[in-house]
Simulated assay, not measured.
Amino acid sequence: MSWQTHPVTPDRFEDFADVINQRRREKHCWCLSHRLRQAEIDELGDGDREQAVRRLSERENPPGVVSYADGEPVGWCSIGPRSEITTLVKSTLIRPIDDVPVWSIICVVVRPGHRRQGVAVRMLEDAVAYAGSRGAPAVEAYPVDPPGRMDLTMAFVGTKTMFEQVGFQVMGSTDAVASRMPRLVMRRDLT
């Protein structure tokens, strides 16, 4: 099997959309909730969410990476400088643990039919490598560590075990809660 991961630039936008919103439903998540304030999303209206993400893909730091297995888009990882992720910048629940200009992972999506095959872990490795190639000194993630099975609908913040598999270490916990569990702060240093 061939494997590739690339930033979601305009030429890869359709592949990204095939992973997170294959039917292009207007009210479906476009992974904007952390990148734009709710008021900005509301101003866009449902029909313009796709265009907003397209505009994000044109930035110097696109909103994340898309992974391919044998040329088929199979996964999405929202990763970028924390300073460019509006919700994290303003968050009183997921506060910075120090002054390191980290990149943050806020969402992971594996396409149906490709789950439980190691796609997420492989994609996370590539996402971390991508951040390192762009000068990130470290990458943080904010997963949950549920005692049982976590409620997974489509996208998720990941689990402690998943991030440990790619070298992340627990740095603390946040005041944010997901699936009724506190979210952790995990980091992988790249320097």
Rank of each mutant, 00 (worst) to 15 (best):
Y142E: 10
A178Y: 12
S83V: 11
D189R: 11
A69V: 13
S104G: 07
R111L: 13
R59W: 04
V108K: 12
P96R: 04
G75P: 00
M186A: 02
M181V: 14
V144I: 14
R59S: 10
I85G: 00
I106M: 03
D70L: 00
H114P: 08
E140L: 07
T5C: 07
G135T: 11
R116C: 11
T174Y: 06
R55G: 05
R55C: 12
T159P: 01
V119I: 15
D46C: 02
T87C: 07
R122Q: 15
G158M: 05
V100F: 00
Y130S: 08
R95E: 14
E164T: 06
T9I: 12
F16C: 05
M162I: 02
A141I: 01
I79M: 11
R35E: 09
V100Q: 05
A155F: 12
T174G: 02
E58F: 00
T191K: 08
D151M: 07
E14P: 08
V128I: 09
R95F: 09
S78D: 15
V110Q: 13
T92G: 14
P147K: 11
V144M: 06
D99S: 15
V65D: 00
D15G: 03
G45N: 09
Q22Y: 07
W30H: 08
I97H: 15
P147V: 09
M162C: 08
D42E: 14
K90I: 13
L93R: 13
W76D: 09
C31K: 05
I41L: 00
I105A: 07
R95D: 11
Q169N: 09
V128F: 02
M162Y: 01
G64S: 05
T87F: 10
I106L: 10
A141C: 07
E43C: 01
H34A: 12
A129W: 04
A39I: 10
A178G: 06
G148T: 11
L93E: 13
T5R: 02
R59T: 13
I97D: 12
Q117F: 02
W103V: 06
D70S: 04
G148E: 15
G75F: 03
V108M: 15
R149M: 14
C29A: 06
R111N: 04
R187K: 09
C29H: 04
G148I: 01
V166I: 10
D189Q: 06
G113P: 04
I85Y: 00
S173A: 14
Q38S: 13
V74R: 01
P112N: 06
I97Y: 09
S173P: 05
